[in-house]
Write a protein that binds this DNA or RNA. Structure first.
Length: 313
DNA sequence: AGAGCAACTGCTTCGGACAG
DNA sequence: CTGTCCGAAGCAGTTGCTCT
């Protein structure tokens, strides 16, 4: 969603959210402006509706993975119509499957809470924090956070970090702290006297503890073994088993982003990752044995180690 | 209920003062 | 000298009101 709603004004985000909401609720692809206004507690002039609808109607949904020679772009809407207070819109057929994905993240949590936000920046930041479930802090460069808020071209903010804080970041944090369960603050990261980034720190009221170095090392060690034995796994003869092994490897590989410094995930999240990694690892070795492939000595040791841990508990 | 106009509010930008 | 802070001015967006 963050990518989809990038650079939209608050009203535009609300309009998009309400379109998704209406579709989700009763499959309706039309809604009355009055209902929309009521939901977000605002007045919406037709001229603004026109501008916002025009912007929304040009939205695109993209998936880009150039490393694998892959990209796709789809329009979100085929069109949007407005007539005497009634919006009618038609989703692009290729986008419809994605609406379902958006539902969980966007509709159930965000709309009730986010409808209270007065600033689009609050919406954006809230979305960003929600997307980083399992993290408890996240360092982000000034450039990146400006891009997140869609203000990377504002001269004032580029040259005057104080203004950026006052009118963008602080506004968003204040609203989130006031209206949601999250508690957000940040530390400034400086290089000399220049602010080069922020370390966003947040919690949902519950006490959170950072993942330990030991936990991260544990994830790292599984990553290393899997990587070393990669060829064993992808050379499995049986097509189905090979595809399954590749999928399991990918899942483990994706954990690499959490192992870097500084440690940003919670203890709880690290526990989940370790469990998941061990499970995948065992499953992969099972596939090797099933296909009469040798399991490396390191892997055998690792599996024994986990068996031993479980026997004790 | 929706459209349109006028007064007002607050944001952005610019340039200059100030501090390390 | 470089980067941050601050005030003035212009202007876009908001509010409140009336008319259709």
């Amino acid at each position: 969603m963050s990518k989809l709603s990038h650079g939209l004004s608050l009203n535009q985000m609300q309009l998009l959210a309400y379109a998704i909401y209406s579709t989700q609720k009763d499959g309706n692809t039309a809604f009355r402006k009055a209902d929309f206004e009521k939901k977000f507690d605002l007045e919406y002039k037709t001229e603004h509706a026109r501008q916002d609808a025009q912007k929304i109607s040009q939205l695109q949904f993209s998936i880009i993975d150039l490393e694998n020679d892959y990209f796709e772009f789809w329009n979100v809407f085929n069109g949007i119509k407005y007539e005497h207070g009634k919006f009618t819109f038609r989703w692009s057929t290729d986008f419809i499957p994605h609406i379902l994905e958006l539902k969980e993240k966007f509709i159930t949590t965000d709309l009730t809470i986010a409808s209270q936000f007065n600033s689009s920046f609050s919406w954006t930041l809230y979305d960003y924090l929600q997307a980083h479930y399992g993290y408890w802090h996240k360092p982000i460069s000034k450039e990146a956070i400006m891009r997140l808020f869609g203000v990377e071209n504002k001269k004032t903010y580029k040259e005057n970090t104080g203004r950026f804080k006052k009118t963008v970041l602080d506004v968003a944090i204040k609203e989130i702290n006031a209206l949601t369960d999250l508690e957000v603050r940040y530390n400034e990261e400086r290089e000399g006297r220049t602010i080069i980034g922020f370390d966003l720190i947040w919690s949902n009221g519950k006490k959170v503890t950072s993942a330990t170095k030991k936990q991260i090392k544990e994830i790292q060690s599984i990553l290393d073994i899997v990587f070393e034995d990669m060829f064993q796994y992808i050379n499995i003869n049986d097509e189905d088993d090979r595809q399954r092994a590749i999928k399991l490897i990918r899942e483990i590989e994706n954990m690499r982003e959490f192992t870097g410094e500084p440690i940003c995930i919670t203890k709880e999240k690290a526990d989940d990752l370790i469990k998941k990694a061990v499970w995948n690892f065992r499953e992969m070795n099972r596939l090797l044995e099933k296909n009469n492939r040798p399991v490396s000595e390191k892997s055998v040791k690792k599996v024994k180690f986990y068996n031993w841990l479980e026997d004790r508990s």
